[in-house]
Amino acid sequence: MALLEIRDLKKYFSTPRGMLHAVDEVNLDIEEGTTLGVVGESGCGKSTLGRTVIRLLEPTSGTVMFDGKDITSVTKRQFHALSTQMQMIFQDPYASLDPRMSVAELIAEPIKVHKLTRNRAEISERVRDLMDTVGLARRLERSYPHELDGGRRQRIGIARALALNPKFIVCDEPVSALDVSIQAQILNLLQDLQQEKKLTYMFITHNLSVVRHISNEICVMYLGRVVEKCEAKELFVHPYHPYTKALLSAIPIPNIHIEQKPIPMTGELTSPINPPNACRFAPRCPYATEQCRSSEPALEEMTPGHVVLCHRAKELNDL
């Protein structure tokens, strides 16, 4: 049994012009101790997926089984107890930390909110442990976030997420704001923690070399739907979906001698508001046919563990 089983998950937002399909019929499993990378166009629903999975947002429909329990049907109160096991690390350590709280107070906050212990000595002991775990020097206890660099701030965010001993963490762009050296430090830290504590991650990012490095599996989203999912390295060697191919072709390579040719994506954008009954990528897809414009494809397994949402995936692969 996977630690997380997401079934037919939908999250719609109501807008003046109709329902906005932010997450639409998503099915995913995440095995304990592994990382699922989530990539896709900005606005395709990655953050909404992450938030809905840990019920920071109420799903429109569908279920999320966590460790065998359906967290979408439990009451708010029952969920409160479960919620300690599911945490989130945000992209922006600047915005997500209260500037008036010291490092120690910030890390103690979740412990206090969830009343893990009221004993002051125990709390400061736990805070120090957590600072050690994430590599924050103890002398920084009394510092405030604005006095620290981005890497250290992100370490505070990680310490806060770890404070309640979670099993599952949604990492929403945790390294996007950092320089490549600090990014490497934080990724190493996340990997060490995963091994030590058997943590399970959903890792949302736009950085494809990062996602390749950190993930076991990667899923690609487009306008609320998962359009491709497979083992991490496999995605780069054998992408099927035309959107995935466009995405991979646009990765900026840090080499001035490689001339990049991103596959151009032209054509109308499909609105996420009341999307038509058709492939959502069809208007921008160079291979779209009448079928693509008139019916929605279903996820199909191309090779074991590699699923694709495209009417023409098999056929295009044989070309």
Binding site: V39, G40, E41, S42, C44, Q91, E173, S176, A177, H206, L208, A246, L247, A250, I251, P252, Q260, P262, M265
Partner: peptide
């Protein structure tokens, strides 16, 4: 930084 690579391109 906040954009996917296709839109970024």
């Amino acid at each position: 930084t906040a954009l996917d690579v296709t839109i970024q391109a």
